Amino acid sequence: MRGAVDLSSLRNRPQTPAAPAGGAPPSAPTAVNSLVMDVTDDSFAQILELSRTVPVVVDLWAEWCGPCKQLSPVLEKVVAELGGRVVLAKVDVDANPQLSQAFRAQSIPMVVALLAGQPVPLFTGAVPEQQVREVFAQLLQMAAQNGVTGTVDVTGEAAPDEAAEPAEPELPPLHAEAFDAIEAGDYARAATAYEQALAENPRDEDARAGLGQVRLLARVQGLDLQAVRAAAAAAPLDQEAQFAAADLDLAGGHVEDAFGRLLDLFAALPNDERAPVRERLVELFGLIGDSDPRVLRARGRLTSLLF
C-alpha cells in the first residue's frame, strides 16, 4: 500500500479543519469535535496528524454509490461503539479528486486506515457488519503494535490513553515475574512463572493464556521461515514440520492458514497418531480465543473429523 499510495503532497497543505459529517467545521484548527468527519483535499493534513494518536479509518465514497450508502452506517455504528479508539474520516471522491487519485480509488466504497500517517488497506466494497468488526479489531491490534494507542473523548479532543483509561490494577507477583522474563527474552522463566500461577489457581485464565503465548514465542524463536516452509512442503505428514510451520503462520497473523494446516494433517493421519495434532490445535485455539469466528469454524471442522 505504501508503494501504491503517495500522500506526501497532502501533508503540508493548510490545515483547514475537518468538518463533522453533516455539520459546520470546528472553530479551532486543531480541534476534532466528532468521531465521524467529512474530510477534503485541504483538510486531510489534519487527519494525517491525528493518525499519530488514534487510528483513522478513511471511507472513500460517492453520492451516487449504492453500496457506499449501505456501508457508511455500519462503519459509523462500529466506530461509535469503540468509544473514541478509532476515528472515521469520510472522503467524497467526486469532490476531492486529489485524495481519490492519491488512494487510487478505482472502486468504491474503499476503506483504508491511517496509522501514524501511513496508509493500511482494509477492504473494498460493502461488507457485512461482522466482517467490519473483525477488521477493526485487527486494526486496533496493529495500532497497538505500532504505538498508536490514544483515544478521543466525546468532544473529539485528542487524549492519551492514560487520561482516558483508569489505572490498571497491579499485576499479581507471578504474572509480574512472567512479564519481566518476557521483556528479557527469557521465555522458559516466563513459562515457569505462569505454570506456578496455574498450580496455585487452576482457574487463572490470564496465566493460561500467557503460558500459551510464551510457549509459542519459545517455539518460533530462531526459526528460519523459508527453511520451515520448505520442510513442511517436503513432508506433509511430518508432525513436527507441520507444527513449526503452523506456529510461524500463527505468529505472523495467518491464523486460518495455521488452523487449516493442522486440520489437514489431522485428517490425513491414522487415528492412533492424531492426539498430538488435536492437542496443538486446542492450544492454538486458546491463544486466539474461543469466541473468535476463525476458532469456531476450525472447531466445527475438527468435530466433524472426530465423529
Rank of each mutant, 00 (worst) to 15 (best):
residue 49 E to A: 13
residue 52 R to I: 02
residue 52 R to T: 10
residue 56 V to T: 03
residue 56 V to Q: 01
residue 57 V to K: 04
residue 58 V to Q: 01
residue 59 D to K: 07
residue 60 L to N: 02
residue 60 L to C: 12
residue 63 E to R: 15
residue 64 W to C: 14
residue 69 K to E: 05
residue 70 Q to A: 13
residue 70 Q to L: 13
residue 71 L to E: 13
residue 71 L to P: 12
residue 74 V to T: 13
residue 75 L to E: 01
residue 77 K to R: 12
residue 78 V to N: 05
residue 78 V to L: 05
residue 79 V to Q: 03
residue 81 E to D: 13
residue 85 R to W: 01
residue 86 V to D: 03
residue 95 A to G: 14
residue 96 N to C: 09
residue 99 L to S: 07
residue 100 S to Q: 13
residue 101 Q to H: 12
residue 103 F to S: 09
residue 107 S to T: 15
residue 109 P to L: 11
residue 110 M to H: 15
residue 116 A to Q: 09
residue 119 P to T: 11
residue 121 P to R: 05
residue 121 P to C: 12
residue 121 P to F: 06
residue 122 L to K: 05
residue 123 F to I: 03
residue 123 F to W: 11
residue 129 E to T: 10
residue 136 F to E: 04
residue 139 L to E: 03
residue 139 L to S: 08
residue 139 L to A: 04
residue 139 L to R: 03
residue 140 L to V: 05
residue 142 M to E: 07
residue 147 G to Q: 01
residue 149 T to D: 03
residue 150 G to S: 10
residue 150 G to P: 02
residue 151 T to P: 01
residue 155 T to F: 09
residue 156 G to Y: 09
residue 156 G to P: 00
residue 158 A to D: 03
residue 158 A to E: 00
residue 159 A to D: 01
residue 159 A to Y: 02
residue 161 D to A: 14
residue 164 A to W: 04
residue 165 E to C: 12
residue 166 P to A: 12
residue 175 H to W: 07
residue 177 E to D: 11
residue 178 A to D: 05
residue 179 F to R: 14
residue 184 A to V: 15
residue 186 D to M: 09
residue 187 Y to C: 07
residue 188 A to K: 13
residue 188 A to V: 13
residue 190 A to C: 11
